[in-house]
Design a protein around this nucleic acid. Structure first.
Lengths: 110, 110
DNA sequence: TTGGAATATTCCAAACAAGGAATATTGTTA
DNA sequence: TAACAATATTCCTTGTTTGGAATATTCCAA
Protein backbone atom coordinates (compact mmCIF):
# COMPACT_ATOMS: atom_id res chain seq x y z
CA UNK A 1 0.00 0.00 0.00
CA UNK A 2 2.84 2.29 0.86
CA UNK A 3 4.59 1.66 -2.40
CA UNK A 4 1.43 2.00 -4.42
CA UNK A 5 0.76 5.38 -2.85
CA UNK A 6 4.22 6.64 -3.67
CA UNK A 7 3.92 5.68 -7.32
CA UNK A 8 0.47 7.19 -7.43
CA UNK A 9 1.72 10.51 -6.09
CA UNK A 10 4.74 10.28 -8.34
CA UNK A 11 2.51 9.85 -11.35
CA UNK A 12 0.48 12.88 -10.31
CA UNK A 13 3.52 15.04 -9.64
CA UNK A 14 3.85 16.37 -13.15
CA UNK A 15 1.96 19.26 -14.73
CA UNK A 16 1.58 17.59 -18.11
CA UNK A 17 0.18 14.45 -16.59
CA UNK A 18 -2.31 16.51 -14.60
CA UNK A 19 -3.39 18.10 -17.86
CA UNK A 20 -3.87 14.68 -19.39
CA UNK A 21 -6.00 13.59 -16.47
CA UNK A 22 -8.00 16.75 -16.78
CA UNK A 23 -8.77 15.89 -20.40
CA UNK A 24 -9.73 12.34 -19.56
CA UNK A 25 -12.11 13.59 -16.92
CA UNK A 26 -14.82 14.05 -19.51
CA UNK A 27 -14.25 11.46 -22.17
CA UNK A 28 -11.86 9.00 -23.72
CA UNK A 29 -9.11 10.32 -25.94
CA UNK A 30 -6.66 8.90 -28.41
CA UNK A 31 -2.98 9.71 -28.10
CA UNK A 32 -2.75 11.94 -31.13
CA UNK A 33 -5.83 13.93 -30.20
CA UNK A 34 -4.42 14.57 -26.74
CA UNK A 35 -1.04 15.54 -28.10
CA UNK A 36 -2.63 18.09 -30.40
CA UNK A 37 -5.00 19.38 -27.77
CA UNK A 38 -2.27 19.81 -25.18
CA UNK A 39 0.36 20.94 -27.64
CA UNK A 40 2.72 18.16 -26.69
CA UNK A 41 4.74 15.87 -28.91
CA UNK A 42 3.25 12.47 -29.61
CA UNK A 43 6.17 10.58 -28.05
CA UNK A 44 6.02 12.66 -24.90
CA UNK A 45 2.32 12.08 -24.64
CA UNK A 46 2.81 8.34 -25.03
CA UNK A 47 5.48 8.35 -22.37
CA UNK A 48 3.31 10.20 -19.90
CA UNK A 49 0.44 7.87 -20.64
CA UNK A 50 2.70 4.95 -19.94
CA UNK A 51 3.49 6.30 -16.50
CA UNK A 52 -0.16 7.00 -15.80
CA UNK A 53 -1.01 3.51 -16.97
CA UNK A 54 1.62 1.89 -14.80
CA UNK A 55 0.24 3.77 -11.83
CA UNK A 56 -3.18 2.38 -12.69
CA UNK A 57 -4.60 5.79 -13.42
CA UNK A 58 -5.64 5.17 -17.00
CA UNK A 59 -6.86 2.19 -18.95
CA UNK A 60 -6.44 1.52 -22.64
CA UNK A 61 -8.77 0.12 -25.23
CA UNK A 62 -7.09 -1.02 -28.38
CA UNK A 63 -9.13 0.03 -31.35
CA UNK A 64 -7.45 -0.84 -34.64
CA UNK A 65 -4.18 1.05 -34.61
CA UNK A 66 -5.53 3.60 -32.21
CA UNK A 67 -5.63 3.40 -28.47
CA UNK A 68 -8.40 5.02 -26.55
CA UNK A 69 -7.27 6.06 -23.11
CA UNK A 70 -9.73 6.46 -20.28
CA UNK A 71 -9.42 7.66 -16.73
CA UNK A 72 -9.55 4.86 -14.20
CA UNK A 73 -11.20 6.47 -11.21
CA UNK A 74 -10.67 3.39 -9.08
CA UNK A 75 -7.00 4.28 -8.88
CA UNK A 76 -7.86 7.11 -6.55
CA UNK A 77 -9.13 4.74 -3.92
CA UNK A 78 -5.69 4.26 -2.39
CA UNK A 79 -5.30 8.01 -2.16
CA UNK A 80 -8.73 8.46 -0.64
CA UNK A 81 -8.10 5.76 1.95
CA UNK A 82 -4.79 7.29 2.91
CA UNK A 83 -6.40 10.70 3.04
CA UNK A 84 -9.00 9.41 5.49
CA UNK A 85 -6.31 7.73 7.54
CA UNK A 86 -4.31 10.93 7.75
CA UNK A 87 -7.35 12.86 8.81
CA UNK A 88 -7.63 10.63 11.82
CA UNK A 89 -6.13 12.03 14.96
CA UNK A 90 -5.79 10.63 18.44
CA UNK A 91 -8.10 12.07 21.04
CA UNK A 92 -7.29 15.13 23.05
CA UNK A 93 -6.91 12.89 26.06
CA UNK A 94 -4.27 10.83 24.34
CA UNK A 95 -2.46 13.98 23.37
CA UNK A 96 -2.51 15.27 26.92
CA UNK A 97 -1.15 11.97 28.18
CA UNK A 98 1.57 12.06 25.61
CA UNK A 99 2.48 15.58 26.56
CA UNK A 100 2.73 14.81 30.24
CA UNK A 101 4.71 11.69 29.65
CA UNK A 102 7.07 13.55 27.42
CA UNK A 103 7.60 16.29 29.98
CA UNK A 104 8.67 13.69 32.52
CA UNK A 105 10.64 11.18 30.60
CA UNK A 106 11.64 13.14 27.54
CA UNK A 107 11.33 9.95 25.65
CA UNK A 108 10.55 11.62 22.39
CA UNK A 109 12.29 14.90 22.74
CA UNK A 110 15.51 13.92 24.46
CA UNK B 1 -3.53 26.11 -8.27
CA UNK B 2 -1.94 23.87 -10.87
CA UNK B 3 1.52 24.57 -9.60
CA UNK B 4 0.52 24.16 -6.00
CA UNK B 5 -0.95 20.77 -6.74
CA UNK B 6 2.19 19.59 -8.49
CA UNK B 7 4.41 20.57 -5.58
CA UNK B 8 1.95 18.98 -3.19
CA UNK B 9 2.05 15.68 -5.06
CA UNK B 10 5.77 15.99 -5.46
CA UNK B 11 6.17 16.38 -1.72
CA UNK B 12 4.04 13.31 -1.12
CA UNK B 13 5.87 11.20 -3.68
CA UNK B 14 8.53 9.94 -1.33
CA UNK B 15 8.29 7.05 1.14
CA UNK B 16 10.26 8.78 3.87
CA UNK B 17 8.11 11.86 3.69
CA UNK B 18 4.98 9.72 3.92
CA UNK B 19 6.45 8.17 7.05
CA UNK B 20 7.04 11.60 8.50
CA UNK B 21 3.47 12.60 7.79
CA UNK B 22 2.29 9.39 9.39
CA UNK B 23 4.15 10.30 12.56
CA UNK B 24 2.78 13.83 12.59
CA UNK B 25 -0.71 12.49 12.25
CA UNK B 26 -0.93 12.02 16.00
CA UNK B 27 1.24 14.65 17.58
CA UNK B 28 3.97 17.19 17.09
CA UNK B 29 7.54 15.98 16.84
CA UNK B 30 10.97 17.49 17.02
CA UNK B 31 13.47 16.76 14.29
CA UNK B 32 15.77 14.59 16.37
CA UNK B 33 12.93 12.52 17.75
CA UNK B 34 11.62 11.82 14.27
CA UNK B 35 15.05 10.96 12.98
CA UNK B 36 15.52 8.41 15.73
CA UNK B 37 12.02 7.04 15.43
CA UNK B 38 12.28 6.62 11.67
CA UNK B 39 15.92 5.59 11.72
CA UNK B 40 16.93 8.39 9.40
CA UNK B 41 19.87 10.77 9.67
CA UNK B 42 19.14 14.15 11.16
CA UNK B 43 20.18 16.07 8.04
CA UNK B 44 17.98 13.92 5.84
CA UNK B 45 15.09 14.43 8.19
CA UNK B 46 15.61 18.19 8.12
CA UNK B 47 15.76 18.16 4.34
CA UNK B 48 12.55 16.24 4.00
CA UNK B 49 10.88 18.52 6.49
CA UNK B 50 11.98 21.48 4.45
CA UNK B 51 10.27 20.06 1.39
CA UNK B 52 7.13 19.29 3.35
CA UNK B 53 7.20 22.78 4.79
CA UNK B 54 7.62 24.41 1.40
CA UNK B 55 4.64 22.44 0.16
CA UNK B 56 2.70 23.79 3.11
CA UNK B 57 2.22 20.35 4.62
CA UNK B 58 3.87 21.04 7.95
CA UNK B 59 4.21 24.01 10.21
CA UNK B 60 7.00 24.76 12.64
CA UNK B 61 7.01 26.16 16.10
CA UNK B 62 10.34 27.39 17.28
CA UNK B 63 10.87 26.35 20.87
CA UNK B 64 14.28 27.35 22.16
CA UNK B 65 16.74 25.58 19.92
CA UNK B 66 14.22 22.92 19.04
CA UNK B 67 11.61 23.02 16.37
CA UNK B 68 8.33 21.28 16.82
CA UNK B 69 6.85 20.22 13.54
CA UNK B 70 3.13 19.71 13.13
CA UNK B 71 0.98 18.46 10.31
CA UNK B 72 -0.90 21.22 8.54
CA UNK B 73 -4.10 19.53 7.49
CA UNK B 74 -5.22 22.60 5.56
CA UNK B 75 -2.66 21.76 2.93
CA UNK B 76 -4.79 18.88 1.79
CA UNK B 77 -7.58 21.20 0.73
CA UNK B 78 -6.06 21.74 -2.70
CA UNK B 79 -5.85 18.00 -3.18
CA UNK B 80 -9.39 17.46 -2.00
CA UNK B 81 -10.74 20.15 -4.28
CA UNK B 82 -8.92 18.70 -7.26
CA UNK B 83 -10.10 15.25 -6.29
CA UNK B 84 -13.69 16.44 -6.32
CA UNK B 85 -13.16 18.19 -9.62
CA UNK B 86 -11.74 15.04 -11.18
CA UNK B 87 -14.64 13.03 -9.92
CA UNK B 88 -16.94 15.24 -11.90
CA UNK B 89 -17.95 13.91 -15.26
CA UNK B 90 -20.08 15.37 -17.97
CA UNK B 91 -23.56 14.03 -18.23
CA UNK B 92 -24.42 10.99 -20.30
CA UNK B 93 -26.21 13.32 -22.68
CA UNK B 94 -23.11 15.36 -23.18
CA UNK B 95 -21.14 12.22 -23.80
CA UNK B 96 -23.63 11.01 -26.36
CA UNK B 97 -23.47 14.33 -28.12
CA UNK B 98 -19.73 14.22 -28.11
CA UNK B 99 -19.73 10.74 -29.51
CA UNK B 100 -22.07 11.57 -32.35
CA UNK B 101 -20.21 14.71 -33.19
CA UNK B 102 -16.96 12.82 -33.21
CA UNK B 103 -18.34 10.15 -35.51
CA UNK B 104 -19.26 12.83 -38.00
CA UNK B 105 -16.50 15.31 -37.86
CA UNK B 106 -13.67 13.30 -36.35
CA UNK B 107 -12.66 16.46 -34.62
CA UNK B 108 -10.89 14.76 -31.76
CA UNK B 109 -9.84 11.53 -33.32
CA UNK B 110 -8.74 12.65 -36.72
C1' DT C 1 2.29 -6.32 -50.64
C1' DT C 2 3.49 -1.60 -50.43
C1' DG C 3 2.50 2.90 -48.27
C1' DG C 4 0.88 5.52 -44.76
C1' DA C 5 -1.20 6.60 -40.24
C1' DA C 6 -1.11 5.94 -35.19
C1' DT C 7 1.45 4.75 -31.44
C1' DA C 8 5.40 3.02 -28.79
C1' DT C 9 10.27 2.68 -27.88
C1' DT C 10 15.10 3.85 -27.76
C1' DC C 11 18.91 6.89 -27.28
C1' DC C 12 20.75 10.97 -25.70
C1' DA C 13 21.52 15.24 -22.99
C1' DA C 14 20.06 18.22 -19.47
C1' DA C 15 17.71 18.99 -15.17
C1' DC C 16 16.39 17.22 -10.84
C1' DA C 17 16.08 14.55 -6.45
C1' DA C 18 18.08 11.86 -2.63
C1' DG C 19 21.39 10.37 0.60
C1' DG C 20 26.01 10.73 3.03
C1' DA C 21 29.48 13.48 5.13
C1' DA C 22 31.01 17.58 6.70
C1' DT C 23 30.07 22.11 8.34
C1' DA C 24 27.46 26.18 9.78
C1' DT C 25 24.06 28.31 12.78
C1' DT C 26 21.55 29.21 16.78
C1' DG C 27 20.34 28.78 21.40
C1' DT C 28 21.42 27.01 26.09
C1' DT C 29 23.96 26.31 30.08
C1' DA C 30 27.86 26.10 33.00
C1' DT D 1 32.36 33.42 27.22
C1' DA D 2 33.18 28.50 26.17
C1' DA D 3 31.28 24.15 25.32
C1' DC D 4 27.44 21.67 23.94
C1' DA D 5 22.93 20.33 21.91
C1' DA D 6 19.57 20.78 18.17
C1' DT D 7 18.85 21.86 13.68
C1' DA D 8 19.88 23.61 9.02
C1' DT D 9 22.81 24.01 5.04
C1' DT D 10 26.33 22.89 1.67
C1' DC D 11 28.92 19.93 -1.23
C1' DC D 12 29.34 15.84 -3.62
C1' DT D 13 27.97 11.62 -5.88
C1' DT D 14 24.59 8.71 -7.80
C1' DG D 15 20.28 7.52 -9.68
C1' DT D 16 16.06 9.18 -11.81
C1' DT D 17 13.07 12.04 -14.76
C1' DT D 18 12.10 14.86 -18.66
C1' DG D 19 11.99 16.21 -23.32
C1' DG D 20 13.67 16.00 -28.16
C1' DA D 21 14.92 13.40 -32.15
C1' DA D 22 15.04 9.38 -34.46
C1' DT D 23 13.36 4.83 -35.12
C1' DA D 24 10.48 0.73 -34.58
C1' DT D 25 5.96 -1.53 -34.54
C1' DT D 26 1.35 -2.39 -35.78
C1' DC D 27 -2.60 -1.96 -38.39
C1' DC D 28 -5.26 -0.45 -42.32
C1' DA D 29 -6.06 0.65 -47.15
C1' DA D 30 -5.10 0.71 -51.87
Amino acid sequence: MEEQLVSLFQALADPNRLRIIDLLREQEWTVGAMARQLNMSQPQTSKHLRILHEAGLVSVTIDANRRRYALNRQAFQAMDAWRTYIERETSRLDRLEAFLEESHREENLE
